[in-house]
Design a binder for these strands. Structure first.
Lengths: 334, 334
DNA sequence: ATGAAAGCGCTAACAG
DNA sequence: CTGTTAGCGCTTTCAT
């Protein structure tokens, strides 16, 4: 049998309470005794049971991560940031995929609550007011990544999707493009919605006409959408809601015998690994996914340690436009 | 406060034990009482605490996944298979990344043991005999993915790396290539080692000379390795230990003004999403990562439910060679 | 078929 | 500073 705290106590000739104090770094323990306990722990190869600890203290050493789909290349980087930060702070991480399905999302949130996680990092699709209320009743800290919600009571971390997208579209316009179309993500997804809105506004404010197609955040969707567009008309530039869509669009363009960026310029969003590996390389909005993950964990852990009082904090991290081969011309900033 | 089993018991006018029986689907409970308990559960919105359950029953509803790096595009698919299967069977999943560092790996295994996971799916780098013994002493079920070990006591799931690689190299040889080089993965990694071995054997058995370069499983490594090779000599084909390396090699070839497959054919392994998106598309060995994940969980859960007796099971899943544009010529099988 | 009681491994007052 | 005593929420004998 694995040794318990009682075994250690006996072995060291002290009480359970003292051992407990030692492993919790309680300062008021006599040094000599502390050493004895450490020795006993060492000799027996004792490790406290995280589960018993949680039950007794109703605290937790686990965090939950709920995201749409780890298979989408943007999320592994985010997840890695979260995982690294979580471990650094002493937490173990649960993970689950929702495919942006609100039902599944709800189910997994419940599941994690039953596992008594200390907090949850949520990359949610839609967050209506009712949903927010539900989450609040759970009485456990949440941090929202990427998908924000106006005036929610939760901490959030994200880039400024609106600003980033507005800039990207403006770049294209400045380079002389007028027939720019937008390949948008699912309208349930807040970030997709922001990007679309920014595109429309930018076009409108430059007296240009919007042309939007909506699909899922996948390569296939990008390919299909672009291919069907090319069947009717030929825009001079495409702003895609993410890199996967952009990459799909780029291939559709090639397969129609057209050239990127010669015939059509393409811009994506996220800066996934393959944006710099494609041919031509993909211009995109760089999103610091890893950093978003780290920040999310830090906010969450602060909350868990008792920052219940303070207001919701909305951290906006810096994005960066990356000009690569899929887009012509000078960087207007140089 | 969240309701406990005692609240439910009182509300239903029964004992805690009876409620426990109901939620555990113990058949010997009077139907009428069972209904009453269900009603009470419903009314109070009761959910059992997974943590208290584990402590009392010393069973567990959690699984651990320990892998090298979720950021490597092969692993998200594996992880998704594992996660889906785990949830389907009622388990919640812990995850952590080791970067193939044995120290970190050991640390995370310990961490999960302290979390009292019911079993662990491990994608380990090296597994010496000593390591195997260590794991066995933990007294908890392990399933090994991708990286096998001859005669280990653990269940394993993987493709036949040797056979798959031997086939791939043979394909190249059959297409007339004689100067084939191999870009291998880290020698600590068992799968990389098998692929290298198969390459060498295939070359040798066809009277050809081996030419191996070793690097990490990354795009950058592939690029660098290939670029340095081209500085000295020009092979006619490259077999890379994974797709990331292959993609890097392909770009290095392009940047030297050479053509794939015209000047040099390239073959990878894994069939990650981007193998079919690159230009030219990448020929590769398709590894059913999702299915490997699902199978691993199934084996693990069987073990957890008590298949302690049976021998280690080594499941070999089917790979498939996928010929795409990065390789010339007819499929020899057609 | 149901209840009473002990206990899983640990923490947390409360004394002293 | 250290030990004693209760639990945390649930499962699990053992009676009945």
């Amino acid at each position: 049998m694995k040794p318990t705290i009682l075994d250690v106590a006996k072995h060291a000739g002290v009480s359970k309470a003292t051992v407990s104090r030692v492993i919790n770094n309680n300062p008021k323990v006599n040094n000599e005794i502390r050493e004895r306990v450490y020795a006993a722990i060492e000799e027996l190869g004792y490790h406290p049971s995280a589960i018993a600890r949680s039950l007794a203290s109703s605290t937790s050493s686990t965090l939950g991560l709920i995201l749409p789909d780890i298979t989408n290349p943007y999320f592994p980087v985010l997840a890695r940031g979260i995982e690294d930060a979580a471990h650094r702070l002493g937490y173990t991480l649960f993970i689950s995929n929702t495919d942006n399905d609100p039902k599944i999302e709800q189910e997994y949130i419940q599941k994690m609550v039953h596992q008594q996680v200390g907090g949850i990092i949520l990359i949610s699709s839609i967050l209506g007011e009712d949903k927010v209320n539900e989450l609040q009743e759970l009485q456990i800290p949440f941090v929202l990544c990427d998908r924000l919600i106006q005036g929610s009571p939760f901490d959030t971390v994200s880039i400024d999707n609106y600003k980033a997208s507005y800039e990207a579209v403006t770049r294209l316009i400045e380079q002389g493009h007028t027939r720019i179309c937008h390949l948008a993500g699912p309208s349930l997804v807040q970030s997709a919605e922001m990007r679309k809105q920014a595109y429309s506004d930018a076009m409108h404010e430059h007296g240009l006409e919007s042309f939007v197609r909506i699909g899922s955040f996948t390569y296939e969707a990008g390919y299909q959408l672009m291919d069907s567009i090319l069947a009717e008309t030929k825009p001079s530039a495409v702003f895609a809601a993410n890199d996967l869509i952009a990459l799909g669009a780029m291939n559709a363009i090639h397969n129609r015998g057209l050239n990127v960026p010669g015939d059509i310029a393409v811009v994506g969003c996220d800066d996934i690994l393959f944006a710099q590996m494609s041919n031509p390389t993909l211009s995109t909005i760089s999103v610091p996914a890893y950093q978003i993950g780290v920040t999310a964990v830090e906010l969450l852990v602060e909350r868990m340690r008792g920052v219940k009082t303070s207001e919701a904090r909305n951290v906006v991290v810096e994005h960066k436009f990356i000009q690569r081969e899929s887009m012509n011309g000078e960087d207007p900033r140089t």
